[in-house]
Write a protein that binds this DNA or RNA. Structure first.
Length: 684
DNA sequence: ACGGATTAAACA
DNA sequence: TTGTTTAAT
């Protein structure tokens, strides 16, 4: 898996920032009385007190560990405060943590290149900022050093020695690379303070010349501290380290290193030649291992502030396994509903759309020989709108199920459980692309809607042909059956051919409910006439959608109506911490406690409705996913202006800007982007 | 077949 | 490309 990258003889300044017991901190911010107490976040209180997923440092002193059950935790630490993960749609809902993570990212992204590595971790490439600082305001001429930076740990430097850290940071005769790291340390200290001020969260960080070392360092002194790894101390630092602690070696690869080569520490690994390692682990992994042992790692910090996929899943362990299609369908609906909500906000906030829908499941088979088969994952193009996602997800499941059970299951309609049970379900949306230029993406977007409808069907169609129809799998006759009907092919075979924008018509069904942008339904007229299919897009308002949906599944077992997706973003617009006094983390808390309640200063709109982390328009740091789009051409004159009104609001704006005569181009960045897109598309 | 829910990335 | 596998938090 690990792949060696050509590494630049490294003078980069890389930081890894890791939030301290993040979920706990999120809960403590929400409920400040928990601060300073042994606390853990737990999900699913039902069985043995639920499973811990985050543990405060106070609780760790008692030996409480992640992956303990709530009950165990109580035993070793009776005082422990257990906070439950929010539940929505019958499952854990991690959105509050995701959003909190975005708050952090949006602060950290202010300096350098920022990569959101997980919900609570970030990599930063601060090389440029460090170089600049070194040139303009080198630490050696600073008279005061950031207090927090002065508290850094520097590997190889004795912390107890007087002023030694300060001295190291400001050393005049230091190695150039060390000076850069020193600047990095100052910058990171500053950023960590900004994070604290902006979010009330503490974090720890590692500063080094590459990602691997930075990551190792960030974990060395927690919580709320930072650690620098000068090049000169890398070897001594790495040598005694158990390989299993290294990223990527925590699993099977690390184990096989131990078992086959007797390698237990990084130092042990040094004794093997690159060739030898390549023999054992392949060319790429071999080289990667060889480099890793020497503290070398060329991986770059990806400029990516937003996740590349969204998923929603749930496990149904043991006795809770799902044994009927009806129950699978019910849960699938919940999962799809959540996924839809997240796709929705990604569209609104970041102007991104996902193009692939994937279903994963795990299941067992009873009374069958090969009961250890894996449930295959299936995917298809993603169509927006809850109902469509639900419909497609169910089809994907059914396709997977019949493959799982083995075809030729011309099964006698014993429609109940024939010895299978589903122990896990998850759906995810991937291949997310941003909508930079309205136009082209919109075309893709609509096109997607057609392609999809036939292509999912093709998938299930194929499996039907291959495998003689299953009896109406599960519950009765609805969507599924419909979707299996022969359908007209609406795909324009298009590679490079000329395109006209599909006509959009509105079904002005009675007034749209609140947030709904309008329900718009697209009809696609094939030139040959015969095929016409209507595709409905809904950008919000799941309920509306289901009502209007032409071939909508009518809720069969539908108990799922209990909870109207209120989901009104509970904006408990929490206080924004006062501008703090102390220049250190400790100082922050000290000053903070004294007047914590008083200063409910200006509402910070940041967390309100504003885009979280990687704010849409500026994908500066982001991987440029823009130019991937296939080649479609279209004529601006064919766009009926009236149609624009029916597009989702955020797309409307872009289209308008795009449609407008380009006289005053280049006013805004956005405008120029779009126009340039247009002209490019036009000449093409 | 209890460490759940997510994410990412490399490989076949 | 899709689907599978590994790994991490």
């Amino acid at each position: 898996m690990p792949v060696a990258r050509p590494e630049s003889s490294d003078s980069r300044v890389i930081a890894h920032v890791d939030m301290d017991c993040f979920y706990v901190q999120v809960e403590q911010r929400k409920q400040p009385s928990l601060r300073g107490q042994p606390t853990a976040v737990v999900q699913y209180n039902s069985w043995q007190g639920g499973g811990l997923i985050a543990v405060s440092y106070e609780a760790r002193k008692f030996g409480v560990k992640r992956s303990m059950r709530g009950d165990e935790a109580k035993q070793v630490c009776p005082e422990i405060q257990l906070v439950q993960v929010p539940v929505a749609r019958g499952k854990a809902d991690l959105n509050t943590y995701r959003n909190a993570g975005s708050e952090v990212v949006s602060i950290l992204a202010r300096k350098g290149i920022c990569e959101r590595a997980s919900i609570d971790e970030v990599y930063l490439d601060l090389t440029e900022a460090a170089e600049k600082m070194l040139k303009e305001t080198p630490p050696e001429k600073l008279e005061t050093i950031n207090e927090e930076a002065a508290k850094s740990h520097v590997l190889g430097i004795d912390k107890d020695e007087n002023e030694s850290i300060k001295n190291w940071l400001c050393r005049n005769d230091a190695d150039y690379r060390d000076k850069l790291l020193a600047c990095g340390a100052l910058i990171v200290a500053e950023l960590r303070l900004q994070v604290l001020n902006g979010t009330e969260f503490t974090c720890s960080a590692g500063i080094a010349h590459n990602k691997m070392l930075a990551k190792l360092a960030s974990g060395m002194n927690k919580p709320a501290q930072q650690t620098v790894v000068p090049s000169s101390s890398v070897m001594k630092f790495l040598e005694p380290l158990p390989i299993k602690k290294m990223k990527q070696l925590g699993g099977k690869l690390g184990t096989s290193l131990q078992n086959h080569l007797g390698v237990n520490t990084v130092g042990d690994l040094l004794h093997f030649s690159e060739e030898k390692l390549q023999e054992h682990f392949g060319i790429n992994t071999g080289t990667w291992l060889w480099n890793t042992a020497r503290g070398m790692n060329g991986e770059e910090v990806q400029g990516r502030l937003l996740p590349m996929s969204h998923g929603s899943g749930k496990t149904f362990p043991g006795p809770r396994a799902l044994r009927t299609i009806a129950s699978v369908e019910k849960w699938l609906r919940e999962l799809c509903d959540e996924l839809n909500e997240r796709l929705q906000s990604d569209l609104e906030q970041n102007k991104r759309i996902a193009r692939t829908l994937t279903l994963h499941a795990s299941a067992y088979k009873t009374n069958d020989t090969d009961s250890f088969k894996k449930f295959p994952s299936k995917s298809c193009p993603l169509r927006y709108g809850t109902a469509k996602i639900q419909e497609d997800a169910l089809i994907l499941f059914q396709v997977g199920l019949r493959e799982f059970l083995g075809y030729y299951n011309v099964n006698t309609p014993t429609k109940q459980q024939d010895g299978w049970g589903v122990t896990g379900l998850s759906i995810s949306a991937s291949k997310i692309v941003s909508i930079p230029s309205g136009t082209r993406s919109i075309m893709n977007y609509f096109q997607n809607q057609y392609e999809t409808c036939s292509s999912v069907k093709q998938l299930s169609q194929r499996s039907i042909e291959d495998a003689k129809p299953l009896p109406p799998l599960g519950s009765g006759n609805h969507s599924t059956l419909h979707s299996l009907e022969p359908e007209v092919d609406c795909i324009h075979e298009s590679k490079g051919s000329e395109y006209a924008i599909p006509t959009l018509e509105i079904h002005e069904e009675d007034g749209e409910p609140c947030t709904v942008e309008g329900f718009l339904s697209t009809s696609c007229h094939q030139e040959d006439g015969f095929s016409e299919e209507t595709v409905a897009l809904s950008f919000s308002g799941a309920e509306t959608c289901s009502r209007l949906e032409p071939n909508q599944v009518d809720p069969m077992v539908d108990p799922a109506d209990e909870e109207t997706t209120n989901s009104l973003k509970s904006k408990e617009q929490k206080r924004k911490p006062s501008k703090n006094k102390g220049t250190s983390i400790l100082g922050y808390f000290q000053s903070r406690d004294s007047f914590s309640k008083v200063t409910r200063g200006s509402p910070c709109k940041e967390s309100e409705a504003s885009p979280p982390a990687g704010t849409s328009m500026d994908p500066t740091g982001q991987n440029d996913q823009r130019r991937h789009a296939g080649s479609y051409y279209y004529n601006i004159n064919e766009i009926d202006p009236a149609v624009v009104n029916e597009l989702p609001q955020e797309i409307q704006d872009e289209v308008r800007a795009w449609l407008r005569p380009r006289k005053q181009a280049n006013t805004t960045k956005k405008g120029s982007d779009i126009t340039s897109y247009f002209s490019r598309a036009k000449d093409a």
